[in-house]
Amino acid sequence: MTTLFIKNMVCNRCIMVVQNELDKLDLSAISIKLGEVVFEKEPTIEEKQNLAEALSVLGFEMIDDKKSRMIEQIKNVIIDLVHHKDNDAKTNLSDILSEKLNHDYNYLSNLFSEVESTTIEKYFIAQKIERVKELLVYDELSLSEIAFQLNYSSVAYLSNQFKKTTGLTPSHFKQIKEDKRKPLDEV
């Protein structure tokens, strides 16, 4: 088995798009998940180049170096945690990342800061704020329900973090709703 790592896969739709490109190129994957595709046998150099070109047109990028792969894995764990899981776990982010990626959190944190020029914590907060924006736009949950769903200790803490990050209060954001959300790969 061999694994190819792909940058900018942030949602289930990305997985479907990558699957579609693999089908077009007649490449069969064992599994596809955020940031990675597993093949039973390694694709040829030509197949990899064709895949890289096809994915590049769609905003994806194949990752070769070890540091970039680890950064992408950190981002994918955080995105999955914030956007795709009903996160009722009260576990620390550092413990989750260490467990899922089999590395010491200090190593992951230093690597992330070195490559991304921001901290894992700031990235995590940015993802949570984007999720709050999404939920506010949907207008299906109250602010206290959103705070609970995203494991904020209080509505006040969520509101303060939201204002500090966006410059707006959640209620003001909800009023203007003029597409202030960013695509996840730009957070």
Rank of each mutant, 00 (worst) to 15 (best):
V137M: 02
N106L: 05
A147S: 15
Q161Y: 08
E116R: 10
E140V: 08
L101R: 02
N160H: 04
L141Y: 06
K164F: 02
I129T: 03
Y123I: 09
Y107K: 01
K182S: 12
S113M: 09
R131K: 15
R181S: 12
L150H: 14
K174P: 00
A147N: 06
S153G: 10
K164T: 12
N106F: 01
S109N: 14
Y107C: 01
Y152N: 10
F112I: 08
Q161A: 07
F124Q: 06
D139C: 00
I176C: 01
T119I: 05
K182F: 13
Y107N: 06
L168C: 01
L101E: 05
N102G: 04
R131Y: 06
T119K: 07
F124C: 03
Y105I: 02
A156C: 00
S113N: 12
E116Q: 10
F124W: 12
F124L: 04
K163Q: 15
F112Q: 12
Y152R: 07
N160E: 10
N110H: 08
Y123H: 11
K128C: 10
R181Q: 15
H103M: 04
E145Q: 12
N102E: 09
S109G: 02
N151H: 03
V132M: 09
E134G: 04
E178D: 04
E134I: 09
H103K: 10
D104Y: 00
I125M: 13
R181Y: 07
R181F: 09
Q161G: 06
Q161E: 12
K133W: 13
T119F: 02
N106D: 04
Y152V: 10
H172L: 15
F173W: 13
K182Y: 15
H103S: 08
L141P: 00
N151E: 05
L150T: 14
L101H: 05
T119Q: 05
S113D: 10
E130Y: 13
K133I: 15
A126I: 04
D179W: 03
I125H: 11
Y157L: 05
E114C: 02
L111P: 01
D139F: 00
F112G: 10
S142G: 14
Y123V: 01
N151K: 11
T119N: 07
L136I: 15
A147D: 03
R131W: 04
N106M: 02
Q149Y: 08
I176M: 05
E140R: 08
S159M: 02
T119P: 03
Y105A: 00
L150Y: 14
F173M: 15
L135E: 15
E134S: 13
V132D: 11
S144C: 02
Y138A: 07
L141H: 08
T166H: 11
Q149R: 15
F112W: 09
K163W: 03
L136S: 11
K133Q: 14
Y138E: 11
Y152G: 06
S171W: 01
D139V: 02
Q161K: 14
E178I: 11
A156R: 03
Y157V: 07
S171V: 12
Q149H: 07
S142P: 00
E145T: 03
K122M: 07
G167N: 07
F124I: 04
V137H: 06
T165N: 10
E178V: 06
E114T: 14
Q175I: 08
K177S: 15
S153Q: 07
T119L: 06
L143V: 13
G167L: 09
R181H: 09
E145P: 01
L158H: 06
A147C: 03
L168T: 01
L101S: 08
P183D: 14
Y157W: 00
Q149L: 13
Y152D: 13
T118Y: 03
